[in-house]
Structures are given as structure tokens and as C-alpha cells.
Amino acid sequence: MSIDLKTIKHISKLSRISVDEKKAEKLAGDLNSIFEFIEKLNELKTDNVEPLTSVAETTLKLRSDKVESKNLREQVIKNSPKENEDYFVVPKVIE
């Protein structure tokens, strides 16, 4: 298989990373060599294997329903590249 420029454009769109023609070509080359190496997995038959998501052999711990976080507005928006007193501010979104 080979990853073409159209696919690169599609995944760059999904990843919200802009690519120009030159960058797309470089990425296509890199990804193709990486996937060539990844394809090695196809040698293995895995039909009856359970997928492993986490090696932690335990289950989710539950916390109690308590409000502990206080008003952190200042802390939370302090690092924001653009804000007013109350809100995070982003370029206008057109629905």
C-alpha cells in the first residue's frame, strides 16, 4: 500500500495541521517508509487474540461526588493567548 498526497491532505485536515505541497510530499515519503516497516504486523495471525488496551490489570477506581475545585477563572485563563476578563477568545466561528 502507499499513502498518496490526497490521503496526506485528508489526515492533515483531521489533525488540523496545515500542509503545503512540499511538506505533503515529504510527509508522504516519510509515512510510506514508516508504514512499510509497520506492515510487518501482517505476518501475524491475530484473529483470536484479545486486544490489549492497558497493561494495568485492574479496573477503574471511583471517586466520590464532591466539589473540590474552587473558582480558578484567573488561573485558568491566565495562560490563554487571548482572553477578556471572563472568556477565552477565538476567531469568529461561522456555523
Binding site: 488540523r16 496545515s18 495562560n79 490563554s80 493567548p81 477565552f88 477565538v90 476567531p91 469568529k92
Partner: peptide, 18 residues
Amino acid sequence: GVKYGFRAEGENLIDMYE
């Protein structure tokens, strides 16, 4: 680019993200 860190200016939200 919304909550913290570097933000590049963009014409709209998606442009800013990319």
C-alpha cells in the same frame, strides 16, 4: 492555541488551529 501556549493568527477558527 485556545487555552494556553503559542497561537498563530488565523482568519477563522480552523485557520487559526491549522
